[in-house]
């Protein structure tokens, strides 16, 4: 038996391979290389084996403690924004009109925050939330609430979370909206005939039909929030203290601030592995959902 042979196809794919090799594989190998060595500058390297990894994963060491606390901080952040953005996104999608000229208007408005570059979002909120010249900060302070995101850890967290919700809820909402649009009218009619309440329609029709897009939304939002860097860096720079130092910020501090290339390399590899593991879990869950859906029994 002969396989389909069309060599032209390989030729077209070649540039992609080259790009991937230069942009992903080579840097990754460099990182792996750094992670098992120590350097005192001057381009002199010494073999360190798994030393950096041991230190990193040992909470009693200074590096380990720092890593663990920023990991927990990042996880907490991801958890909070998922808990807010997913339900809020569903609610927004449900409230959006399903036909007429308002649909296009809604879609454009929803897409706007998504089109703003990350660092600009950080800058906007940095100004917007300032107590002296920022509209939000000024109003909140005027209402008699003591609010200062540069000095107070809780205020900094709230500001970053509100900013992320503002920036990304519309992505969740748009995905859910697409899921809702794919439900045939007959389902709603049948539910009305069956006397289902609004809540029952949501629970028995809309939510199950949105399950797939919701999984994608959760995955995307988790990945993205877990790797968040630009906005908090611009807004708070990781402070006050270490209050908003998420993993990515920690990593950059380590690599560029302290020039601890070995530690930073080990840390970025562990960071990478965590993300891959979570990806894998989501992928498995998602394919299981699909398989279950497609299995038709007599």
């Amino acid at each position: 038996m002969t396989k389909i042979v069309n060599n032209r196809a390989w030729f077209f794919v070649l540039p992609v391979f080259a790009t991937v090799a230069f942009s992903a594989i080579l840097p990754l190998m460099t990182v792996v290389n750094y992670s098992v060595q120590d350097t005192f500058g001057n381009n002199q390297f010494f073999w360190n084996g798994i030393g950096w990894f041991q230190e990193l994963l040992d909470p009693s060491s200074q590096l380990g403690e720092q890593f663990l606390s920023s990991l927990l901080r990042t996880l907490l952040f991801s958890f909070i924004i998922l808990m807010i953005e997913i339900p809020l996104g569903i609610a927004v999608a449900l409230a959006m009109p399903r036909e007429g000229w308002t649909v296009a208007l809604c879609l454009v408005l929803m897409a706007l925050p998504l089109l703003i570059p990350w660092n600009v979002v950080g800058t906007i909120w940095q100004v917007f939330a300032r107590g002296d010249i920022g509209l939000l900060g000024w109003i909140v302070n005027r209402l008699g609430i003591d609010y200062n995101y540069t000095g107070d850890a809780l205020d900094a967290w709230i500001t970053i979370i509100v900013m992320d919700v503002w920036h990304w809820t519309s992505l969740v909402a748009l995905l859910c909206y697409a899921g809702l649009k794919s439900i045939p009218d007959a389902y709603y009619q049948a539910a009305r005939i069956d006397g289902a309440s609004r809540w029952a329609v949501f629970r028995t029709i809309q939510l199950p039909k949105m399950r797939r897009v919701l999984l994608i939304a959760v995955l995307l939002r988790f990945m993205d929030s877990f790797m968040i860097y630009t906005e908090p860096f611009v807004l708070t720079g990781g402070g006050p203290g270490n209050a908003t130092t998420f993993l990515s910020i920690d990593l950059v501090k380590l690599a560029l601030g302290q020039f601890d290339l070995g530690k930073a390399a080990a840390m970025s590899l562990v960071y990478n592995l965590i993300i891959l593991a979570v990806c894998w879990v989501f992928y498995t869950v998602m394919t299981n959902v699909d398989a279950e859906r497609e299995r038709v029994e007599a």
Binding site: P184, A186, Y187, Q189, A190, I193
Partner: peptide, 10 residues
């Protein structure tokens, strides 16, 4: 009502 395409609660 019974529709053209089966409607069941999945």
């Amino acid at each position: 009502q019974v529709f053209q395409f089966p409607v069941v609660y999945d």
